[in-house]
Design a protein around this nucleic acid. Structure first.
Length: 258
DNA sequence: GATGACCTGTGA
DNA sequence: TCACAGGTCATC
């Protein structure tokens, strides 16, 4: 369920705790979570004995550099990282936050007796070795106007679909896109390629503001746009709409989002 | 592109 | 019991 803000929190959390630590053992009780081919025993073989270097992030994807392969960690819908028994960030608003040991899908134990785990009740997260880093577009937290224009250019898809497409812009998910479009006063169904220069500027400013403000507040769920039935737009009091756009539940205000 | 599928937990 | 959930993927 994490979007870019939660994943960045996880990156900072890991950055403070894991670089320089040596992997003494790997626990991969759930082979489902390991994507891209390797069996748990392969992952164990190549990671054991390596030392963690930097912790990077692009969009919602985490990369842990080692002196062996890059360890890719994706939190999916319900994943959190746990280091030495402590979970990163605040509890997920809709997610399960319990301690069921079966939810620890993958872990590495350090030779100092600590460890790093992916805790993922819904099993939609993923562990990968040497993930393809080119499959993601520019990171939303560092998005330039030129990059946004390129992402939107000549796309006939709904604006929301393009912003959710991780190959075009990496990091924005359902909640952040709704909040961003609401703040930018742009309708989610607008065709991406038809935005004029002024609208693109508004969108870029809104992406930056939304990420900054919600980041400061504590996450993707702290937006001002309500996501429940029978609510009105906080900006103009008009009834909000709930539609499906790009396959996802979409809340928006038809009165001011055009 | 939209759609359904993946998997499981939560709350109505 | 059912609808729904902040992500991604294969398939039409």
């Amino acid at each position: 369920m994490p979007e870019i803000l939660e994943v960045e929190t996880a990156r900072e959390f890991l950055h403070e705790r894991v670089p320089g630590r040596r992997i003494a053992a790997v626990d991969a009780p759930d082979s489902w979570i390991i994507k891209g081919g390797p069996a748990p025993s392969d992952v164990t073989d190549v990671l054991t004995g390596t030392t963690i270097g930097g912790v990077r992030r692009r969009g919602k994807q985490l990369y842990l550099d080692t002196d062996g392969p890059v360890l890719g960690v994706h939190l999916g819908m319900s994943g959190r990282v746990v280091v030495d028994g402590e979970a990163a960030g605040d509890p997920l608003v809709y997610g399960a936050n319990g301690e069921n040991p079966a939810w620890l899908r993958f872990g590495v134990r350090f030779d100092d007796d600590g460890g790093l785990w992916l805790r993922d009740p819904r099993r939609l997260g993923r562990i990968e070795l040497d993930p393809d880093e080119e499959r993601l577009g520019p990171d939303a937290l560092a998005l330039s106007g030129r990059e946004l224009t390129a992402a939107l250019d000549r796309r006939s898809a709904p604006l929301k679909a393009v912003l959710m497409d991780q190959r075009r812009v990496a990091g924005l998910g359902n909640l952040l896109v709704d909040e961003t479009l609401w703040r930018a006063a742009l309708g989610p169904g607008r065709l991406a390629g038809e935005l004029d220069a002024d609208e693109r500027r508004r969108l870029l400013r809104s992406i930056r503001t939304t990420l900054r403000v919600l980041g400061r507040r504590g996450g993707s769920h702290t937006g001002d746009l309500p996501r429940e039935p029978n609510t009105v737009c906080p900006r103009d009091g008009a009834p909000l709409r709930r539609d499906t756009v790009a396959g996802r539940t979409t809340w928006w205000c038809p009165a001011h989002q055009r």
